Simulated scan of single mutants.
Amino acid sequence: MPIRIPNGLPAVAALETEGVMVMDDEQPVWEHKRPLRFGLLNLMPNKIKTEIQIARLLGATPLQIELTLIKITHYSPKNTPTDHLVSFYHDWAEVRAQKFDGFIVTGAPVETLPFDKVSYWDELVKIFDWTQTNVHSCLNICWGAQAAMHRFHGMPKYELSKKAFGVFPHYSMEARSPYLQGFSDEVHIPVSRWTEMRSADIPPNSGVSVLMESPETGMCLVHDPKHHSLHMFNHIEYDSYTLADEYFRDRASGREIDVPKHYFPDDSDKLAPTNRWRGHAHLLFGNWIAQIYQTTPTEVSRIGIDR
């Protein structure tokens, strides 16, 4: 089944070359089932790459999905052409009256700042609160996951002495979770962050459960049923070369950075990395979408009312 995304978005050409079925805004909606409506609040600096990564995973599922690209209303990103934002993105203020089956909040390059020092924190708080009435299920990624856990549970984040950077083995803590259906016992997932949250800080009686974690980098995937959310603290959506791009970018800028662990063969940055997480990325998104499909209201207007 296809994903329906804005006509002309650069992701269209990239996904079509990979065999992902894509519909644009001018093609008719299939009538026998309504499409699932997904919103992507894209806070990443390279928005086009992130669009492709997320749309690839959403578009690989056997359901028709409409993707709406969203940005912070009162913040102007510096790394994305203005014409791209004008053509394809909606301010959150424009869509706040709408309802979505699924909603994704990405990471952002602000993780070492205190939450309340992030320039768009006040609006993001409003967005998180809005998801509780206008979204059926959320997936928050990396800093987005930390921000959500801080908003909903008051959890602190801790700055690391060295960046958690590489592809680390993770293990299931809740093998029977529907979100982990089909997962291997050991799952390799990209990690790229300067901060962490700790399971010891999860409030008792919060209903939050850790689904996956790593002995080296801690919590990875957390289920927060009271807030209809999954929190992914790492980057299972990354492309094969995303960590390499980050590594070579930081090295070129003179920033002290180690070679990402367990990523390049023999830890040699002269060799092409091997993607060991792609299959599990598709599984996670497929399982999440399947849960949404099975539980979301038939009528869009009932989202946030019928749970």
Rank of each mutant, 00 (worst) to 15 (best):
I127N: 01
H150D: 04
Q132C: 03
W130L: 04
S119W: 00
E196Y: 07
K126V: 06
V210N: 02
G207Y: 05
S184D: 15
Q132A: 07
F165E: 09
S192I: 11
S206D: 10
F183G: 01
W194I: 03
I127D: 03
A164D: 14
P114G: 04
T112C: 13
I127W: 08
S161F: 02
Y171W: 08
A175C: 04
P156R: 07
R176N: 14
G154A: 01
V191H: 13
F168K: 03
V118Q: 11
D116N: 15
S184C: 13
S184G: 10
M197R: 05
C138H: 09
N140L: 08
F168M: 12
I189F: 04
M155K: 00
I202V: 14
G207A: 07
P114F: 09
Y179P: 05
R151K: 11
R198F: 04
Y179R: 02
D185N: 13
P178R: 07
H136K: 08
V191L: 07
K163Y: 04
L113A: 13
T133A: 11
E196V: 12
Q181R: 15
R151G: 00
P203V: 05
A164P: 01
H136I: 09
V167F: 00
H170Y: 00
S209G: 07
I141Q: 10
G182I: 05
Y171G: 02
M212F: 06
K126N: 10
E159L: 14
F152D: 07
L180P: 07
D122L: 07
T133L: 08
P178E: 09
S199W: 11
I127T: 02
V125A: 11
S172A: 13
P114S: 12
L113D: 14
K163D: 01
L124W: 00
R176D: 15
E159T: 12
G182R: 11
P190I: 09
V118D: 00
P190D: 09
N140C: 08
P114I: 04
V125L: 10
C142A: 07
P169E: 11
S206R: 05
E123T: 12
L160D: 10
P190E: 02
R193G: 03
T133E: 13
P190K: 07
M197T: 12
V118T: 13
D129G: 02
K162R: 12
S172T: 06
E196M: 13
A147D: 00
G154C: 08
D116K: 13
S199R: 10
R193D: 05
A147N: 02
Q132N: 12
H136V: 04
R176Y: 06
V167N: 09
L113Q: 15
R176G: 12
S172H: 02
M155F: 12
H153P: 02
S161V: 08
C138T: 12
I202D: 10
S184E: 15
R176W: 01
T195F: 05
P156N: 10
Q146D: 08
F165Q: 06
